[in-house]
Amino acid sequence: MALVSMTVNGSAVAREVDDNTFLAFFLRDHLGLTGTHVGCDTTQCGCCVVHVDGRSVKSCTMLAAQAQGCAVTTIEGLATGDVLHPVQRAFHLHHGLQCGYCTPGMIMAAVNLIETHDGALTEEIVREEMEGNLCRCTGYHNIVKAILAAADEMSPSHAAAE
């Protein structure tokens, strides 16, 4: 057992957990944050993506202990009160989700892509960069649309125009 402490969605948390506890299960089972999903157990599907110190991470193969002292953001921490993050809003408006199981990881990966990509995003770049996230429902079409729309809304030039 190990005492693991970190900041999750802005709150300090500490839990005594088995050494082999992965971050995804730390979030789901120990903190009750079940928005982070596990779809493959092996870092292939991306349903479990969260942000650890501002980086996109597949939490199903990162030990909770490796996030010791880190700042973790999950899908539950993305909206500001009742106001959805632009990426969450874009997924809704562009029907970028169907069953919703891949959606939390998809949104977290997309947020990180938009925030960290230098220059304008194009369909080709989105398809290339998001390749580590799988969706079985949407054929990706509307997710690409949603990410491009959110990127546009979040871009400095968009803000300047308003």
Partner: peptide, 21 residues
């Protein structure tokens, strides 16, 4: 019309089987 079910699903509040204990 955008979907009614989306709000819970984009905020991590879905109710999938493994979410229940």
């Amino acid at each position: 019309l955008p979907r009614k079910e989306d709000l819970r699903l984009v905020t991590g509040k879905g109710r999938f089987t493994d979410d229940f204990n």
